[in-house]
Amino acid sequence: MKSFKKFLRTGLGLIGALIILALILVALFANQIAPYDPNAQNYDQILMPPNAEHIFGTDDLGRDIFSRVVFGSQISIKAALISVGIAMIIGVPIGLFTGYYRGFWDEWVVMRIIDAMQAFPFLILALAISAVLGSGFGNAMLAIGIGFAPSFVRITRGQVLSLRNMEYVNAAKSVGVKDMRIIFRHILPNALGPIIIQATLAMATGILAEASLSYLGLGVQPPTASWGSMLNQAQTLMSVAPYATYYPGMAIFIVVLGFNLLGDGLQQFLDPRTRK
C-alpha cells in the first residue's frame, strides 16, 4: 500500500496508467462498446459526417468509424505486448549472459552486432525486416521485436555490469553458488527496474511502429480494423472526409502519450535517486 501511494504521487504516471487502463477495458469489452460490426459495409451511408447514429462518422465503404477505432484498440494492445515480449525474450537473456561472462564474445561479437543494428533508425530496421518476412500482423510483430531487441540487450548488460561485482554477488560466489543461480536469483531481480521502464516506453514505440507498418501495408491487412490501416485508407479522403483521419490519429496519440507518461512515472517510482 505504501508503494502504491508513492506511485500515486508521481502525478503524470498515474494519468498514464489511467489511459492504459482505459485502453485495456475498451479492448476487452469492444463487442459491448462498439455499436456496429467494424467490418459491416453500408453503401447507403457512405462518408457520413459525425452524427447521432455514427458519432465518428462513416468511411468510404459505409463502415462505422467509432466501431473500427474501438476494435483497433485490440490490435494496439497486441502490438505493444507481443512486440515487446519478443524483444525481451531475445534481448534480456543475451544481456544477462554477455554482461556476466564478458570476454571476446561480449566485446567483439555480440556488442558489434548490436552496434550495427542500432546504426539504423529503428523504424527503418523494422521496415526492412518486415519487407523480408512479408506482410501480416505476425511478421510485423517479429520485425518490431527484433528491432527492439538491441535496446534490451544494452540496458540489461549495463545493469549486469554494475551489479556483477557487488558484495552480495561476490559473497555468493565465495560460498560456491552456481553462476545460473547468481544470474537469475541475485542479479536479474535487481536489474528489473530499468528493464520494466524500458519495456513500458517500448510499448509506446511498438504501437507507433505497428501503425506505421500497417499504414504502409506491411502490418494488419484489410478488412481488420487497425489504426494505422485506417489512416492509410483515409488519406485519400482528406478533401471530402477529413474526420476519417482525426479519430484513429487521435487514438494513436493518446495511447502513445499514456505509455510515455506511465514510463516516466515508473522511472520516478523505481529509480532510488528520484524517490522521496
Score class of each variant (00 low, 15 high):
Gly158Arg: 09
Met111Ser: 10
Gln159Cys: 09
Leu261Asp: 10
Ala40Leu: 15
Thr224Met: 09
Leu8Trp: 15
Pro189Ser: 13
Lys5Arg: 09
Leu266Glu: 01
Phe120Leu: 06
Gly72Val: 12
Asn170Cys: 07
Leu61Trp: 14
His186Arg: 02
Ala79Trp: 12
Phe259Ile: 04
Val26Tyr: 04
Tyr246Lys: 10
Ser229Val: 15
Val92Asn: 04
Thr245His: 04
Gln74Gly: 06
Arg181Asn: 10
Ser67Thr: 07
Thr10Met: 00
Ser239Ala: 06
Asn139Tyr: 10
Gly176Asn: 07
Gly228Asn: 01
Met203His: 11
Asp271Trp: 13
Phe4Asn: 07
Val175Thr: 10
Ala234Met: 08
Ile82Arg: 00
Val92Tyr: 10
Ile55Asp: 04
Pro121Ala: 01
Ala87Gly: 14
Ile129Asp: 01
Val92Glu: 14
Ala119Glu: 09
Lys5Gln: 05
Ser162Lys: 15
Val132Ser: 14
Leu188Phe: 06
Thr10Glu: 06
Thr58Arg: 05
Phe4Ala: 08
Phe104Asp: 12
Val256Ile: 08
Asp115Lys: 15
Ser162Ile: 10
Ser229Trp: 10
Arg157Asp: 08
Ile146Leu: 09
Arg154Glu: 08
Thr156Tyr: 09
Leu188Val: 15
Asn42Ser: 05
Met203Trp: 00
His186Ile: 10
Pro272Gly: 03
Gly62Tyr: 03
Leu208Ile: 05
Ile15Phe: 12
Pro248Arg: 06
Phe120Ser: 14
Gln233Tyr: 13
Trp108Cys: 14
Arg157Leu: 08
Trp227Cys: 09
